[in-house]
Design a protein around this nucleic acid. Structure first.
Lengths: 124, 124
DNA sequence: AATATGTATAAGAGAATGCTTATGCACTTA
DNA sequence: TAAGTGCATAAGCATTCTCTTATACATATT
């Protein structure tokens, strides 16, 4: 549960891009590891580095997990994180009309995760 | 129901900003029209024009409705649109692992709303 | 009508974003 | 060990975003 406006904004922003949403769906249908990064790049009609950069953003919020197979890298969805965000966002909508307990002083809010990238195995 | 990646990205992007999320919550608690635009600007510690620009983005996706009272303007949440987006986003998560029927050719998808701003009474 | 108040729009500056090409890195294979 | 393959990172560029100040617009008040 992140439940905090600042973090929610970060997640929503990461998801708020057409190509990244497509990347998620492509990797979601990637159970047999059919698509590697270059395949996705072709599907999206952008370069491989551009694809890697989008993937990085999705890894940073923990939604994608790396799975290297030789010199190819496959990605899959972290279902737990996905489910968590699904809940958090729904909660955000559900509590829209409830007053913020900390009056938007995000720094004082216990739900304020310093960095969402801690969810990522590639946290630095 | 928008149910389309391209439109979903637009909505998520509009919501993917800390200040805009705060604006939503502030206006959500604005039943008695306590806060006008300038009040919100003060709360967010940005200028009034910056606030108006954020509001415009939220109006464009239909989440905010204008209510002019004299020379002040108050805003309130359009609960129907909010509920719709809540559903759409939840659907997006729920169907993450389902294959896109149109193989991401958004132009062919019947759910592809040309412009979300049609939801706005200020559509142009 | 003239003035006052509050909001929206315009214009411009600086930061952030998303792309490209070039290159380095990880791993495989001959 | 050397060459090949695919991904990540670096650097640079164009575009978009978010802010500011200045100004136009809408409404109320005197």
């Amino acid at each position: 549960m992140i439940g905090h406006i600042k973090n929610m904004a970060e997640v929503l922003k990461a998801l708020g891009d057409e190509k990244r949403l497509k990347i998620i769906k492509i990797f979601a249908s990637n159970n047999n590891e059919t698509f590697c990064v270059s395949d996705v790049a072709n599907q999206l009609d952008i370069s491989q580095p551009a694809t890697s950069q989008h993937i990085k953003i999705l890894k940073n919020i923990g939604i994608l997990e790396e799975n290297r197979r030789g010199f190819r890298v496959f990605y899959k969805i972290n279902s737990d994180v996905l489910a968590e965000y699904r809940n958090d966002i729904d909660e955000l909508f559900k509590t829209t009309f409830e007053k913020c307990q900390y009056n938007f002083s995000c720094d004082k809010c216990p739900y304020n995760n310093k960095s969402l990238s801690e969810k990522s195995s590639n946290a630095y």
